[in-house]
Design a binder for these strands. Structure first.
Lengths: 258, 258
DNA sequence: TAATAAATGTCGTTT
DNA sequence: AAACGACGTTTATTA
C-alpha cells in the first residue's frame, strides 16, 4: 500500500513549494509550520508581522493561520477559497482568495519548519447534545418539565417577527408562549419574548402567559421580565439532554417489547 | 544548534505517547494526525465517531480538533486547559480538562499518521484595521466625514443603558447621537440608537438628532429608522481606515517639519 | 438573496 | 464576578 502522506522536516522553500502544490492539486489537507508574515484584505485589513506559525489548508478551501497561543486563528478564510502557491524573492507565497467579499489572505514563508500533506479520511458522525433544540425536544416529550399540566400546541410557530420556540396551554387552558435559552438569560431574550407577546397578546380580555426558560437569570433581567408580567422557569440544557436520552431509551425498550 | 522540532511519520502509539508527553511537559505546540474519536462533556455534550483528524495542542492550554473540512474546529477547548496523555487498551488517550465550566474533551487515537512537536517562536505584532473603533477614530479625526460642520463633543459617552459611540453637535449646534456599525445595519442597531435617545431626548423643546453610520442598510431597517425620525449616513470602515492612514501620515509629516 | 437567531460562541471592557 | 457589546464573528434556517 502506498503511503498516504508526505511529511517534510525542515524542507527548503523549493521542496516545500513542490509538495504544497502537489497537495493542493490532489485536494489533501496540508499543514505548514515556519516563519512567515500574513497580510489580509477584505471586510477589514490586517497585518501580522514575522513569526513562526501553523497554516492549515483544507480540501474544502478553508484555511487557518494559528499562532502558538489563543483559541481562534489569527487569520483565516472560510470554505470555498482558492489556493495559489508560488516562489517569489526567496519566499514561499501562499495566496488564499475568496470570491465572496473579495477577500484575500497572503501567507509569505521565509523559512519552513515542516510541510505535511495528509490524506485524512473522515466520515464519522458528529452529534451534539444539550443544544437549544434539545431543550425544545425535551419539553415536547415531557411537558411537565416546564410545569404540571402544560400542553404544547405548536413549536417553532411562525409569527410576524420570527418563531416562537414553544406555544402551548397551561393546566388552566391559558395560552402560553415559551422562549428557550441554553445559557444564562439576557435582556435580549426578554425582548425577544416581548416581541412575540406584542403580536400575540393583543386582546386585553384574553390572558396570555410568557415564560422564559433558561438555566440561569441575572437580577436585572429578572426585574425586566417581572415588570412586563412575564415568568421565569429554571431548566438546564443538560437536564433536557438527560430527558431525551431516557425517553429515547424508553421508546427503544418499548420497541423491543413488540 | 539542536533541532527545535520532533516530527514522526506513522509512529506507533507508544512512540506517539512518549513524544506527546515530552512536548506537553516542555510547553511546545503539538500537532497530531490520526484515526480517533472524541468525547466532550461540559456546557454541552458531544460525540465524534471514528475518523482521521488533526489535533493541535498549544502551550497556553488551547486545543483544537479539526476535521478535513469546515472552518471551525469540530471540538475544542479554550486556553487554560490541562493536558493528560496515557496509553489505554491499545489507544492513545489525550484528555483536555478545563476547570472553568468543568469541561473535558477526550481524544482517543487508535492509530497515528503523524506526531509533530514544534517549538514555535512568535513575537510578531498583529494589527487589524477597519474595525468599529477605527470608524470612531476616523470621524473624530475628520468630523466632516460624517457631515460638514459636525463637531464631536464626546466619544464613548456613558449613559444609563451603555455607551454612545459619538456625541456631538451639528453645524446648527443641535445635539447629535451617532451609532457606528462596521457591517450592514440591523434592526438591533436601530434599537441600540433608540435606547440612547430614550434617555437623551427627554425634553420635547430641545431637538436631538440620531444618526446611524454603517456601510449599508436594509430596506426594512431604513423604514424603522425613518419612522423613529432618525437618520442614516453611509460610511464604510475601509474609508475610515484610509482616513486614519492619511491622517497619521499627515501628523507624521507635520512632525518632521518641526 | 435577505433576515434572523443560535453558538460548547470567544474575547475584551467596564461596573 | 457580572453585564454588555464587538467580532473579518460563522453557521443554519426561513421567507
Amino acid at each position: 500500500m502506498e503511503k498516504r502522506q508526505v511529511i517534510l522536516d525542515s524542507p527548503t522553500l523549493e521542496e516545500g513549494l513542490k509538495t504544497v502544490k502537489l497537495g493542493v492539486s490532489r485536494h489533501k489537507t496540508i499543514v505548514i509550520a515556519g516563519n512567515c508574515y500574513v497580510d489580509y484584505e477584505g471586510r477589514a485589513n490586517s497585518k501580522l508581522e514575522n513569526g513562526e506559525r501553523l497554516l492549515i489548508l483544507k480540501p474544502d478551501g478553508s484555511a487557518l493561520v494559528h499562532r502558538p497561543r489563543d483559541y481562534p486563528p489569527v487569520n483565516w478564510q472560510p470554505p470555498g477559497s482558492i489556493y495559489k502557491t508560488s516562489l517569489l524573492d526567496e519566499r514561499l507565497v501562499i495566496r488564499v482568495y475568496r470570491r465572496k467579499d473579495n477577500e484575500v489572505m497572503v501567507i509569505t514563508y521565509t523559512s519552513l519548519i515542516m510541510v505535511a500533506v495528509l490524506d485524512l479520511r473522515d466520515f464519522g458522525d458528529f452529534n451534539l447534545y444539550a443544544s437549544e433544540r434539545d431543550m425544545q425536544q425535551a419539553i415536547l416529550l415531557q411537558p411537565s418539565l416546564l410545569e404540571e399540566g402544560f400542553q404544547p400546541v405548536a413549536h417553532e410557530h411562525s409569527v410576524d417577527p420570527g418563531f416562537i420556540d414553544i406555544l402551548g396551554r397551561d393546566k388552566e387552558g391559558i395560552l402560553t408562549i415559551v422562549e428557550l435559552k441554553r445559557v444564562k438569560a439576557s435582556k435580549e431574550a426578554v425582548l425577544q419574548l416581548k416581541k412575540y407577546m406584542d403580536v400575540i397578546d393583543l386582546d386585553p380580555g384574553r390572558r396570555v402567559r410568557a415564560i422564559l426558560v433558561a438555566p440561569e437569570i441575572g437580577k436585572g433581567v429578572q426585574e425586566l421580565l417581572s415588570s412586563l408580567g412575564y415568568e421565569y422557569k429554571e431548566i438546564s440544557p443538560q437536564i433536557c439532554a438527560d430527558v431525551i436520552k431516557k425517553r429515547s431509551g424508553k421508546v427503544l425498550s418499548e420497541f423491543f417489547k413488540l
